[in-house]
Design a protein around this nucleic acid. Structure first.
Lengths: 160, 160
DNA sequence: TATTGTTATACTCTATAACTATA
DNA sequence: TATAGTTATAGAGTATAACAATA
């Protein structure tokens, strides 16, 4: 990528975009997300939000609506929207909790569970393949790196 | 995060969303991106696309429109849209190349350069602070990790 | 009053394609 | 015919707020 005028522009502050960590991270996440979506978007007509909710419901028998939000980090509006779509297509059931009728008890239908069972092996295999690009030391470091960066940036967000 | 029914659901395939790499990466990138946008979105009324373009122009005297796309990984439509906004606000000039009038020569105006000079130290300081959450070994591993994962997933995307 | 969820609205982002003008 | 850029459109994602039902 050798483009543009590279004459010094006589300034102090400078930023090399392709080497800037937030930029690189955004690109990587987008590319990874894209490559995973290839596995469920076209074949199963699911958006990312919908897939996240199916994934959250997949290893639980049932779940309250508010907990889906916590598990998927989607807000209640996004959950509500995505659930409408999933319910319409018969992948999820949503029934009012008799003990507190504000709650909705969510569960995958047999069709939803079957979809989950089909997609999970695909995305796990792809995750594994992606991570196999790393050497042993890198793979070992990855979890700690992500945990620390997530904690640090969440802290920044909270403080403003 | 201890929610929902955890009884075994009697199935082979299973996915633990909070530990799933693509999910964690998407969250992290979103959080990082957010924490950077805090530095320019409100104060300077810039979208991410606009900031990327200003950043790409900042360390070059001038740039052809098509190269901005390559440098920022925005497509020509996104570039065109963002540039309209930047030009309207007097941050960028866009003049037709006399040698090939399809080309546009882009450059920051003095106001645009002044904005760049103000934002760059802020985002660099924040980048540094975020990365300082890592220990030495992790910091050293990070570049290789991102390069390898980016290459691997781009490869996946190309193959479908 | 507080909580759960729905609906409304607006803006940003992504994706594709049609179109203009230049070459 | 190919390329650079603009415009149009639709769908997805993000963000806030108003609202209804329930507790």
């Amino acid at each position: 990528m050798d483009v543009g005028e590279r004459e010094p522009v006589g300034q102090d502050a400078d930023l090399n975009l392709p080497g800037f960590f937030p930029y690189r991270l955004a690109l990587l996440a987008e590319t990874v997300s894209h490559s995973m979506a290839q596995l469920y978007a076209d074949r199963f007509e699911m958006t990312r939000h919908e897939w996240r909710i199916v994934a959250a419901l997949g290893n639980r028998k049932r779940l309250a609506g508010r907990d889906v939000g916590r598990l998927t980090t989607l807000d209640k509006m996004q959950v509500s929207r995505a659930l409408s779509g999933l319910e319409e297509r018969g992948l999820v059931t949503r029934i009012a909790d008799p003990l507190d009728r504000r709650n909705h008890i969510l569960a995958l239908t047999p069709a939803g569970r079957s979809l989950y069972q089909k997609v999970v092996p695909l995305v796990r295999a792809r995750e594994e393949y992606i991570l196999s690009a790393l050497n042993e030391g890198e793979a070992k470091a990855l979890d700690g790196i992500m945990t620390k960066l997530q904690a640090r940036t969440e802290d920044l967000l909270r403080r403003g």
